[in-house]
Simulated assay, not measured.
Amino acid sequence: MAEHQVGDYVKGKKFGSFEHDFEGEIEKVYENSVLIHILSYHDEDRILVGELNNRAIVRKDDAEPAKAEAK
């Protein structure tokens, strides 16, 4: 698996109170996890994402490369 880097767009697996997977950009890389700025998520998770200030810390193994959607 390629090493995660700041700026990579990834898909994060649902965890905790999340009902669905989400996508975003890596803001910081830690030893075993990454901080993701959540940019795309299911509407059912809207309130939770807001409470988390659009950020989540995810295990590196649970952050898979994804392609950003063109807007």
Score class of each variant (00 low, 15 high):
residue 11 K to Q: 15
residue 17 S to T: 08
residue 1 M to S: 13
residue 15 F to P: 00
residue 22 F to G: 00
residue 38 I to M: 11
residue 67 K to S: 06
residue 32 N to S: 12
residue 12 G to C: 01
residue 16 G to M: 11
residue 13 K to V: 00
residue 43 D to V: 09
residue 3 E to G: 09
residue 49 V to N: 11
residue 27 E to G: 04
residue 20 H to T: 00
residue 40 S to E: 15
residue 15 F to H: 06
residue 52 L to F: 08
residue 17 S to G: 06
residue 20 H to Q: 12
residue 35 L to R: 11
residue 11 K to W: 00
residue 19 E to F: 12
residue 26 I to F: 05
residue 64 E to W: 06
residue 18 F to A: 03
residue 12 G to K: 00
residue 16 G to V: 09
residue 59 R to C: 01
residue 70 A to R: 07
residue 28 K to Q: 13
residue 11 K to G: 07
residue 53 N to W: 12
residue 20 H to I: 00
residue 58 V to A: 04
residue 35 L to S: 10
residue 5 Q to F: 06
residue 38 I to A: 01
residue 43 D to C: 01
residue 8 D to G: 09
residue 10 V to D: 00
residue 10 V to N: 01
residue 49 V to H: 07
residue 17 S to N: 15
residue 9 Y to E: 03
residue 42 H to C: 15
residue 18 F to I: 05
residue 41 Y to T: 05
residue 25 E to Q: 10
residue 40 S to I: 08
residue 6 V to D: 13
residue 57 I to P: 00
residue 69 E to T: 11
residue 7 G to W: 06
residue 29 V to D: 10
residue 64 E to K: 12
residue 44 E to G: 02
residue 15 F to V: 05
residue 29 V to H: 03
residue 60 K to C: 02
residue 52 L to K: 09
residue 19 E to N: 14
residue 29 V to T: 08
residue 67 K to T: 13
residue 45 D to P: 05
residue 24 G to Q: 02
residue 33 S to V: 02
residue 58 V to R: 01
residue 18 F to H: 15
residue 54 N to F: 15
residue 26 I to Y: 01
residue 48 L to M: 13
residue 32 N to E: 08
residue 46 R to C: 15
residue 5 Q to P: 10
residue 48 L to G: 15
residue 7 G to V: 08
residue 8 D to F: 11
residue 63 A to S: 07
residue 8 D to P: 11
residue 30 Y to F: 03
residue 25 E to V: 11
residue 43 D to N: 12
residue 64 E to P: 00
residue 37 H to D: 14
residue 57 I to L: 12
